[in-house]
Nucleic acid binder design. Sequence first.
DNA 1: CGGATTGTCAACCAAATGGTTTAGTGTTAG
DNA 2: CTAACACTAAACCATTTGGTTGACAATCCG
Lengths: 105, 105
Amino acid sequence: MTDLDSTFSALSHQARRAILKQLATGEMRLSDLAEPFDMSQTAVSKHVRILCDAGLVTMEQRGRTRYCRLNAIPMRAALDWIADYETFWQGQFDSLARHLAKEGL
Amino acid sequence: MTDLDSTFSALSHQARRAILKQLATGEMRLSDLAEPFDMSQTAVSKHVRILCDAGLVTMEQRGRTRYCRLNAIPMRAALDWIADYETFWQGQFDSLARHLAKEGL
DNA sequence: CGGATTGTCAACCAAATGGTTTAGTGTTAG
DNA sequence: CTAACACTAAACCATTTGGTTGACAATCCG
Protein backbone atom coordinates (compact mmCIF):
# COMPACT_ATOMS: atom_id res chain seq x y z
CA MET A 1 0.00 0.00 0.00
CA THR A 2 1.55 3.30 -1.10
CA ASP A 3 1.16 6.53 0.87
CA LEU A 4 -1.33 7.77 -1.69
CA ASP A 5 -3.34 4.58 -1.27
CA SER A 6 -3.69 5.14 2.46
CA THR A 7 -4.36 8.86 2.08
CA PHE A 8 -7.17 8.43 -0.44
CA SER A 9 -8.44 5.44 1.48
CA ALA A 10 -8.57 7.49 4.67
CA LEU A 11 -10.52 10.18 2.84
CA SER A 12 -13.01 7.68 1.45
CA HIS A 13 -15.19 7.55 4.56
CA GLN A 14 -17.67 10.25 5.46
CA ALA A 15 -16.92 9.98 9.18
CA ARG A 16 -13.19 10.44 8.67
CA ARG A 17 -13.69 13.48 6.45
CA ALA A 18 -15.97 14.90 9.13
CA ILE A 19 -13.27 14.27 11.74
CA LEU A 20 -10.75 16.14 9.62
CA LYS A 21 -13.14 19.06 9.22
CA GLN A 22 -13.64 19.11 12.98
CA LEU A 23 -9.91 19.14 13.56
CA ALA A 24 -9.52 21.96 11.05
CA THR A 25 -10.87 24.25 13.75
CA GLY A 26 -8.03 23.25 16.03
CA GLU A 27 -6.76 20.60 18.40
CA MET A 28 -9.42 18.35 19.92
CA ARG A 29 -9.74 15.60 22.47
CA LEU A 30 -10.70 12.17 21.18
CA SER A 31 -13.86 12.05 23.29
CA ASP A 32 -15.02 15.44 21.99
CA LEU A 33 -14.36 14.25 18.45
CA ALA A 34 -16.53 11.21 19.08
CA GLU A 35 -19.44 13.11 20.63
CA PRO A 36 -21.33 14.21 17.46
CA PHE A 37 -21.20 10.75 15.90
CA ASP A 38 -23.92 8.14 16.16
CA MET A 39 -21.26 5.54 16.77
CA SER A 40 -19.41 4.07 19.71
CA GLN A 41 -16.30 5.86 20.91
CA THR A 42 -14.37 2.73 20.02
CA ALA A 43 -15.47 3.05 16.40
CA VAL A 44 -14.44 6.71 16.25
CA SER A 45 -11.15 5.79 17.85
CA LYS A 46 -10.59 3.29 15.06
CA HIS A 47 -11.29 5.95 12.44
CA VAL A 48 -8.84 8.30 14.11
CA ARG A 49 -6.26 5.53 14.13
CA ILE A 50 -6.70 5.10 10.37
CA LEU A 51 -6.16 8.84 9.96
CA CYS A 52 -3.03 8.59 12.11
CA ASP A 53 -1.73 5.65 10.10
CA ALA A 54 -2.27 7.68 6.94
CA GLY A 55 -0.31 10.50 8.59
CA LEU A 56 -3.20 12.95 8.32
CA VAL A 57 -3.54 13.25 12.09
CA THR A 58 -1.12 13.11 14.99
CA MET A 59 -1.96 12.36 18.59
CA GLU A 60 -0.37 13.47 21.78
CA GLN A 61 -1.22 12.19 25.22
CA ARG A 62 -1.34 14.71 28.03
CA GLY A 63 -2.54 13.21 31.26
CA ARG A 64 -5.40 10.87 30.61
CA THR A 65 -6.63 12.48 27.43
CA ARG A 66 -5.41 12.24 23.84
CA TYR A 67 -5.27 15.38 21.78
CA CYS A 68 -5.55 15.14 18.00
CA ARG A 69 -4.02 17.54 15.53
CA LEU A 70 -3.97 17.74 11.75
CA ASN A 71 -0.97 17.16 9.55
CA ALA A 72 -1.28 18.51 6.04
CA ILE A 73 1.63 16.84 4.29
CA PRO A 74 -0.13 13.71 2.99
CA MET A 75 -3.05 15.84 1.87
CA ARG A 76 -0.69 17.79 -0.31
CA ALA A 77 0.51 14.58 -1.97
CA ALA A 78 -3.08 13.69 -2.75
CA LEU A 79 -3.64 17.13 -4.17
CA ASP A 80 -0.47 16.77 -6.20
CA TRP A 81 -1.73 13.58 -7.73
CA ILE A 82 -4.98 15.17 -8.85
CA ALA A 83 -3.12 18.21 -10.17
CA ASP A 84 -0.70 15.98 -12.05
CA TYR A 85 -3.60 13.99 -13.47
CA GLU A 86 -5.14 17.21 -14.66
CA THR A 87 -1.85 18.28 -16.24
CA PHE A 88 -1.98 15.21 -18.45
CA TRP A 89 -5.59 15.54 -19.25
CA GLN A 90 -6.55 19.02 -20.43
CA GLY A 91 -10.15 18.09 -21.03
CA GLN A 92 -13.61 18.61 -19.62
CA PHE A 93 -12.33 20.78 -16.79
CA ASP A 94 -12.42 24.37 -17.92
CA SER A 95 -8.99 24.53 -16.38
CA LEU A 96 -8.22 23.61 -12.82
CA ALA A 97 -6.64 27.00 -12.29
CA ARG A 98 -9.77 28.95 -13.22
CA HIS A 99 -11.79 26.67 -11.01
CA LEU A 100 -9.56 27.24 -8.03
CA ALA A 101 -9.49 30.96 -8.75
CA LYS A 102 -13.27 30.93 -8.51
CA GLU A 103 -12.90 29.36 -5.09
CA GLY A 104 -10.80 32.26 -4.04
CA LEU A 105 -7.57 30.33 -3.65
CA MET B 1 -21.99 5.78 0.46
CA THR B 2 -21.77 9.34 -0.77
CA ASP B 3 -20.31 10.32 -4.13
CA LEU B 4 -17.19 11.56 -2.40
CA ASP B 5 -16.85 8.22 -0.64
CA SER B 6 -16.84 6.34 -3.92
CA THR B 7 -14.57 8.86 -5.64
CA PHE B 8 -11.89 8.79 -2.95
CA SER B 9 -12.33 5.04 -2.60
CA ALA B 10 -11.81 4.61 -6.34
CA LEU B 11 -8.63 6.69 -6.11
CA SER B 12 -7.30 4.65 -3.20
CA HIS B 13 -5.86 1.85 -5.32
CA GLN B 14 -2.61 2.14 -7.23
CA ALA B 15 -3.96 0.15 -10.19
CA ARG B 16 -6.99 2.39 -10.57
CA ARG B 17 -4.91 5.55 -10.45
CA ALA B 18 -2.67 4.01 -13.11
CA ILE B 19 -5.71 3.25 -15.23
CA LEU B 20 -6.84 6.87 -14.96
CA LYS B 21 -3.38 8.08 -15.95
CA GLN B 22 -3.49 5.74 -18.95
CA LEU B 23 -6.87 7.07 -19.96
CA ALA B 24 -5.64 10.63 -19.63
CA THR B 25 -3.84 10.10 -22.93
CA GLY B 26 -7.16 9.33 -24.59
CA GLU B 27 -9.77 6.68 -25.18
CA MET B 28 -8.58 3.09 -24.73
CA ARG B 29 -9.83 -0.44 -25.17
CA LEU B 30 -10.30 -2.52 -22.03
CA SER B 31 -7.83 -5.16 -23.22
CA ASP B 32 -5.15 -2.56 -23.93
CA LEU B 33 -5.74 -1.08 -20.48
CA ALA B 34 -5.20 -4.50 -18.95
CA GLU B 35 -2.05 -5.32 -20.86
CA PRO B 36 0.58 -3.54 -18.67
CA PHE B 37 -0.81 -5.02 -15.44
CA ASP B 38 0.44 -8.16 -13.76
CA MET B 39 -3.12 -9.16 -13.15
CA SER B 40 -5.83 -11.05 -14.97
CA GLN B 41 -7.99 -9.14 -17.40
CA THR B 42 -10.94 -9.99 -15.18
CA ALA B 43 -9.31 -8.18 -12.28
CA VAL B 44 -8.62 -5.10 -14.40
CA SER B 45 -12.19 -5.25 -15.63
CA LYS B 46 -13.35 -5.14 -12.02
CA HIS B 47 -11.20 -2.09 -11.33
CA VAL B 48 -12.62 -0.35 -14.37
CA ARG B 49 -16.10 -1.18 -13.16
CA ILE B 50 -15.34 0.49 -9.83
CA LEU B 51 -14.14 3.57 -11.72
CA CYS B 52 -17.35 3.51 -13.76
CA ASP B 53 -19.48 3.18 -10.63
CA ALA B 54 -17.65 6.18 -9.19
CA GLY B 55 -18.43 8.05 -12.42
CA LEU B 56 -14.76 8.65 -13.18
CA VAL B 57 -14.87 6.55 -16.34
CA THR B 58 -17.50 5.86 -18.95
CA MET B 59 -17.61 2.89 -21.28
CA GLU B 60 -19.01 2.51 -24.74
CA GLN B 61 -19.33 -0.73 -26.62
CA ARG B 62 -18.54 -0.66 -30.33
CA GLY B 63 -18.61 -4.09 -31.86
CA ARG B 64 -16.94 -6.57 -29.57
CA THR B 65 -14.69 -4.12 -27.80
CA ARG B 66 -15.37 -1.71 -24.93
CA TYR B 67 -13.84 1.74 -25.13
CA CYS B 68 -13.14 3.60 -21.89
CA ARG B 69 -13.10 7.36 -21.49
CA LEU B 70 -12.50 9.68 -18.58
CA ASN B 71 -15.08 11.85 -16.89
CA ALA B 72 -13.70 14.66 -14.78
CA ILE B 73 -16.76 15.76 -12.86
CA PRO B 74 -16.37 13.57 -9.76
CA MET B 75 -12.67 14.41 -9.64
CA ARG B 76 -13.60 18.04 -9.34
CA ALA B 77 -15.82 17.28 -6.35
CA ALA B 78 -12.89 15.55 -4.67
CA LEU B 79 -10.69 18.52 -5.41
CA ASP B 80 -13.37 20.82 -4.04
CA TRP B 81 -13.42 18.91 -0.80
CA ILE B 82 -9.68 19.25 -0.33
CA ALA B 83 -9.81 22.93 -1.28
CA ASP B 84 -12.66 23.51 1.16
CA TYR B 85 -10.76 21.68 3.87
CA GLU B 86 -7.81 23.94 3.21
CA THR B 87 -10.03 27.00 3.38
CA PHE B 88 -10.96 26.08 6.94
CA TRP B 89 -7.48 25.21 7.94
CA GLN B 90 -4.95 27.86 7.04
CA GLY B 91 -2.06 25.99 8.59
CA GLN B 92 1.03 24.06 7.65
CA PHE B 93 0.44 24.53 3.93
CA ASP B 94 2.22 27.64 2.82
CA SER B 95 -0.97 28.34 0.95
CA LEU B 96 -2.58 26.02 -1.51
CA ALA B 97 -2.55 28.74 -4.11
CA ARG B 98 1.20 29.25 -4.00
CA HIS B 99 1.69 25.53 -4.16
CA LEU B 100 -0.47 25.20 -7.24
CA ALA B 101 1.23 28.21 -8.79
CA LYS B 102 4.53 26.42 -8.35
CA GLU B 103 3.05 23.50 -10.33
CA GLY B 104 2.30 25.87 -13.18
CA LEU B 105 -1.45 25.64 -12.84
C1' DC C 1 -19.28 -22.08 -40.97
C1' DG C 2 -15.46 -22.16 -37.60
C1' DG C 3 -12.02 -20.13 -34.92
C1' DA C 4 -9.96 -16.29 -32.63
C1' DT C 5 -10.85 -11.98 -30.02
C1' DT C 6 -13.07 -9.33 -26.39
C1' DG C 7 -15.06 -9.29 -22.45
C1' DT C 8 -18.54 -10.71 -18.81
C1' DC C 9 -20.41 -13.83 -15.20
C1' DA C 10 -20.27 -17.03 -11.45
C1' DA C 11 -18.06 -19.32 -7.96
C1' DC C 12 -14.66 -19.29 -4.86
C1' DC C 13 -11.12 -17.55 -1.57
C1' DA C 14 -8.25 -14.75 1.76
C1' DA C 15 -7.87 -10.57 3.82
C1' DA C 16 -9.47 -5.99 5.08
C1' DT C 17 -13.30 -2.79 6.70
C1' DG C 18 -16.55 -1.09 9.78
C1' DG C 19 -19.05 -1.91 13.36
C1' DT C 20 -20.34 -4.01 18.03
C1' DT C 21 -19.68 -5.36 23.13
C1' DT C 22 -17.03 -6.49 27.11
C1' DA C 23 -13.12 -6.06 29.71
C1' DG C 24 -9.04 -3.78 31.14
C1' DT C 25 -5.34 0.08 31.74
C1' DG C 26 -3.90 4.45 33.17
C1' DT C 27 -4.88 8.90 35.19
C1' DT C 28 -6.95 12.34 37.78
C1' DA C 29 -10.19 14.35 41.10
C1' DG C 30 -12.39 14.16 45.53
C1' DC D 1 -8.06 5.06 48.57
C1' DT D 2 -11.81 5.02 45.52
C1' DA D 3 -14.55 6.28 41.89
C1' DA D 4 -15.04 8.36 37.58
C1' DC D 5 -12.92 9.45 33.20
C1' DA D 6 -10.52 8.64 28.73
C1' DC D 7 -9.23 5.51 26.08
C1' DT D 8 -7.28 0.90 24.20
C1' DA D 9 -7.50 -4.11 23.43
C1' DA D 10 -9.61 -8.24 22.29
C1' DA D 11 -13.06 -10.99 20.48
C1' DC D 12 -16.57 -11.32 17.44
C1' DC D 13 -19.46 -10.54 13.24
C1' DA D 14 -21.20 -9.25 8.53
C1' DT D 15 -19.89 -7.20 4.44
C1' DT D 16 -16.66 -5.57 1.02
C1' DT D 17 -12.36 -5.85 -1.53
C1' DG D 18 -9.16 -7.77 -4.55
C1' DG D 19 -7.81 -11.48 -6.60
C1' DT D 20 -8.20 -16.20 -8.97
C1' DT D 21 -10.10 -19.72 -12.41
C1' DG D 22 -13.34 -21.67 -15.67
C1' DA D 23 -17.28 -21.31 -18.47
C1' DC D 24 -19.96 -18.59 -21.41
C1' DA D 25 -21.61 -14.87 -24.87
C1' DA D 26 -21.00 -11.92 -28.50
C1' DT D 27 -18.55 -10.33 -32.46
C1' DC D 28 -15.40 -10.25 -36.19
C1' DC D 29 -12.23 -12.48 -39.67
C1' DG D 30 -11.09 -15.77 -43.20
